[in-house]
Design a protein around this nucleic acid. Structure first.
Length: 195
DNA sequence: AATGATAACAACCGCCAACGT
DNA sequence: AACGTTGGCGGTTGTTATCAT
């Protein structure tokens, strides 16, 4: 292939590379292309589909968001428990952990851990007066002493708002340049689009 | 009602291993 | 065997939404 080691950070001069949030149109293009051609070499795919994105960006978008089998939001207590259990075994091996949670992505689990669980662990540590010792321990590997986590996570305020997408109406909402939509909408659109 | 602080999420970046030529 | 490319992973950052004052 005609490749310079671009590796995600598009610093090619002549080809402009888009960054930042994906638009609805880009999503549709990617979905359509993969529906018709399947996944392939991501860099080539991005070009062939006409997306001004790096292959890496396309891959990430597809795996974490657009895939039909991806489940987002509403992590169940069972899943929380499993995440904590696996994390205590494997540490930050997010992709490995994600393999045991069908439909969940490593990125989502990682975010979930960092925003919801790690915070509570630190709080619990602070209460038990050990914060100085185990500082950022979770990022290294084992959680040797997890203080009865489920009780801590039982009903923190943040759980009330853990699913932003549900704040949006059932149908897609388009707001100025940004678009928010349900994946159901996207998939039904692309099916209609059929190409 | 306005402002600031915090939480949650999406996406990017850099590194590394695997694979192909 | 060496080099280049790609894919995957984990860490980090930027943006937006929500809550509290």
């Amino acid at each position: 292939m005609d490749k310079k080691p671009e590796d995600g950070n598009g610093k090619s001069q002549d080809v402009e590379v888009r960054k930042g949030p994906w638009t609805m149109e880009e999503d549709l293009i990617l979905i359509n292309y993969i529906a018709n051609h399947g996944e392939g070499v991501w860099n080539s795919l991005a070009k062939a589909a006409g997306l001004k994105r790096t292959g890496k960006s396309c891959r990430l978008r597809w795996l974490n968001y657009l895939r039909p089998d991806v489940r987002r939001g509403n992590i169940t207590p069972e899943e929380q428990l499993l995440i904590m259990e696996l994390h205590s075994k494997w540490g930050n091996r997010w992709s490995k952990i994600a393999k045991h949670l069908p439909g969940r992505t490593d990125n989502e689990i990682k975010n979930f851990w960092r925003t919801r669980i790690q915070k509570h662990i630190k709080q619990a540590e602070a209460f038990s007066g050990q914060s100085s010792e185990m500082n950022d321990q979770a990022s290294t590997s084992q959680m040797s002493s997890m203080p009865e986590p489920m009780e801590t996570y039982d009903s923190p305020p943040s759980f009330q708002t853990n699913n932003n997408m549900e704040a949006f109406p059932a149908n897609l909402v388009v707001e100025s340049n940004e678009a928010y939509w349900n994946m159901d909408d996207l998939w039904s659109m692309q099916l209609l689009n059929g190409d």
